[in-house]
Amino acid sequence: MRLGYLVRRILFLIAVVWVAATIVFFIPRLSARNPIRERFAEIARSTGFAPKDLEQIIAAYEVKFGLDKPLLQQYIEYMAGVLRGDLGPSLTRYPKTVLELIFSALPWTIVLLMLTTLISFALGNLLGALASWPRSPKFVKGLMAPLMMLQAVPAYLLGLLLIFFIAFRLKLLPMGGAYSQGVTPSLTLEFILDAARHQILPAISLILASLGFWALGMRGMGITIQGEDYVNFAEHKGLHPRTIFTQYYVRNALLPQITGLALAFGSVIVSGVLVEQLYGLPGLGGLLGDAILKNDYFVIYGITLFVILSIAVLMFIVDLIYPLLDPRIRYESR
C-alpha cells in the first residue's frame, strides 16, 4: 500500500510536469515573433551592421537550431532531449546552452529564496503560534493585523517602497544590483559582504510579503488545537508551559504548515522573479524576464521546466517526510 501510494504520487507529479512542459512548449510557437530575426534587428540597431544575405543567415540558424522541422517533431525531439538532461542552446546568447545559463543564475536565486523562505517560515510560524497562545503578551496579537495587510501587498511593491524610503531617501542601502559597480565576483570576504549588503532589501521585501501567510495559518491551527484534550491533560499534569508550547502545541500545529511549504514554493518563485527583476539581480528571475522580452524559447522552456520540476520534487519530499513528522500518518493499510 505504501509503495502503491508512492507510485501514484510519482505518476501524478510526472503528469503535472509533463502538462506544464507541453503548455509551455506550444504557447511561444503560436506567436508570429521570430527571436533570431529580432536579435539581428537589435544588432543592426546598435551597431549599424546589417548583413545583405540576412534571410539566408536566419534560415541557416533555424536549420541549426532545428526550428525548420515540423512543430510536432521539434516537440518530440525537445522532450527526448529533456529526458537526456539537454535543454538545448540559447537562441539569443548562442553558443551558451540553457543549462549553463541556468546554473550561472541559480546560486543567486537559491541563496535569496531559500534564506527568505526559511526565515519567513520560522518567524511567521513562531509569531502565529504566540498569537494564539493564551499566555503570550498582548503586542504579539496586535501584530497580526499589520501582518495580514503586508501579506496582501506583492513583494514587488514592498520592494519598490523600500527602495524609495530606505535606499533613496535615507541612503542606507544600495538601490539595486547584485554587487557594487566595478567589483568582480570572487570568493573573498570583501565581495561576499558587498553582495550580502545588496541582498538585504530584496530579502526584506520577500520576507515581509510572506510572513503574514505563515503567521495567520499558524494562528488558525493553534486556535483549533487549544481546546484539544491532550493540551488540557498536559496542563493538568503540571508540565512547564514552555514544554506544552513547544512539544504539544507547536509540534501539532506545524504539520499542515509544512505541507503549505511545498505549495508556497510556487508563489515564492513568482515573487522572486519579480523582485529579482526590480533589483536587477542576476538570478533566474532576471534571466527569465530577459528571455521573455527577446522570445528566446529554449531559455523560457528551460527555466519554466526547471521551476516546475523543483516544485514537484519538493512536493514529493514533503510527502516522504510527512509520516516522520506525524506518527499518526502511515502510508500503509491498517
Binding site: 502538462v19 504557447i27 510556487g266 518563485i269 523560457i300 512536493m315
Partner: peptide, 17 residues
C-alpha cells in the same frame, strides 16, 4: 494537475508571445 503549476509563469509566457 493544473493547480500546482504556478499560473503566473504560464501567464508571462502567454503575454510574452
Amino acid at each position: 494537475v493544473l493547480l500546482p503549476i504556478p499560473a503566473f509563469l504560464i501567464l508571462v509566457i502567454i503575454a510574452g508571445s
